[in-house]
Simulated assay, not measured.
Amino acid sequence: MPSPSKPAACPCGGAAFATCCGPFLSGAAIAPTAQLLMRSRYTAYTLGDEDYLRATWHPSTCPPPPIIDRAEAVKWLGLEVESALRLRQRKVNLPDSPGRDSVEFVARYKINGRAHRLHELSLFVREGEGARARWLYLEGSFPE
């Protein structure tokens, strides 16, 4: 369930929520790249928007509900997408396919005042044709 109040600045680091991740979360637009989908999913986590997370998770790997544990007091602190050069180096190991992409990021957050850092290499697949094509989160791995 999305938060009733939407932020002015986008939690993913974009300028304004209304022109950055807002259109994706509202359903007014579909993220055209895996990186934009990853950023919008981060924003969905910060807002507690489980419906968006489920809609953008590939059905073959989507976990049972709930995705977000509402009993945990999580405060999201920021997102950093790893450099394009580093991503290109990692993608050398991926099969060459326009329907697959990966995004490496670090998300910082606190749970009950304790700081955490999530470093993930997310794999996305693109399904559908033409205007119906959309990126979906498939799985993540955790680089050392």
Score class of each variant (00 low, 15 high):
1 M>N: 10
2 P>K: 13
2 P>Y: 00
3 S>F: 06
5 S>I: 10
6 K>Y: 10
6 K>R: 14
7 P>H: 04
7 P>C: 01
8 A>H: 11
8 A>R: 13
9 A>V: 13
9 A>D: 13
9 A>F: 11
10 C>E: 07
11 P>T: 05
11 P>R: 07
11 P>E: 03
12 C>R: 04
12 C>F: 07
13 G>V: 02
13 G>I: 08
16 A>H: 12
18 A>I: 07
18 A>P: 01
21 C>N: 03
22 G>A: 05
23 P>T: 03
24 F>I: 06
26 S>R: 07
26 S>Y: 00
26 S>D: 12
28 A>T: 10
29 A>H: 10
30 I>K: 13
31 A>P: 06
33 T>S: 05
35 Q>T: 15
37 L>S: 03
37 L>V: 05
39 R>G: 00
40 S>N: 08
41 R>M: 02
42 Y>H: 06
42 Y>L: 01
43 T>L: 02
44 A>D: 06
45 Y>T: 02
45 Y>H: 14
47 L>W: 04
47 L>F: 03
48 G>S: 10
48 G>Q: 00
50 E>N: 11
50 E>M: 07
50 E>Y: 09
51 D>S: 13
51 D>L: 11
52 Y>N: 01
53 L>D: 03
54 R>W: 10
54 R>M: 04
59 P>G: 09
59 P>W: 03
59 P>K: 01
60 S>Y: 00
60 S>W: 03
61 T>Y: 02
62 C>I: 07
63 P>F: 10
63 P>V: 03
64 P>R: 15
64 P>Y: 11
67 I>S: 11
67 I>K: 09
69 D>L: 08
69 D>R: 01
71 A>R: 12
71 A>E: 15
72 E>T: 11
73 A>K: 13
73 A>N: 15
74 V>L: 09
75 K>E: 14
75 K>C: 09
76 W>A: 04
77 L>R: 06
77 L>K: 05
78 G>Q: 08
79 L>M: 01
82 E>G: 13
83 S>F: 09
83 S>C: 14
84 A>N: 11
85 L>H: 12
85 L>R: 11
86 R>V: 14
87 L>K: 13
87 L>V: 13
88 R>A: 12
89 Q>K: 11
90 R>L: 13
92 V>M: 12
94 L>T: 09
94 L>Q: 09
95 P>S: 12
95 P>F: 03
97 S>K: 00
101 D>V: 02
103 V>E: 05
104 E>L: 14
104 E>S: 14
104 E>A: 15
105 F>P: 03
109 Y>W: 07
109 Y>I: 06
111 I>R: 12
112 N>L: 04
115 A>S: 15
116 H>N: 11
117 R>M: 12
118 L>K: 13
118 L>I: 02
119 H>M: 13
122 S>E: 11
123 L>Q: 12
123 L>N: 05
124 F>Y: 06
126 R>C: 01
129 E>R: 08
131 A>D: 15
132 R>Q: 15
133 A>W: 02
133 A>L: 00
136 L>K: 09
137 Y>P: 06
138 L>I: 00
140 G>P: 05
141 S>W: 07
142 F>C: 15
142 F>Q: 12
143 P>W: 02
143 P>Q: 01
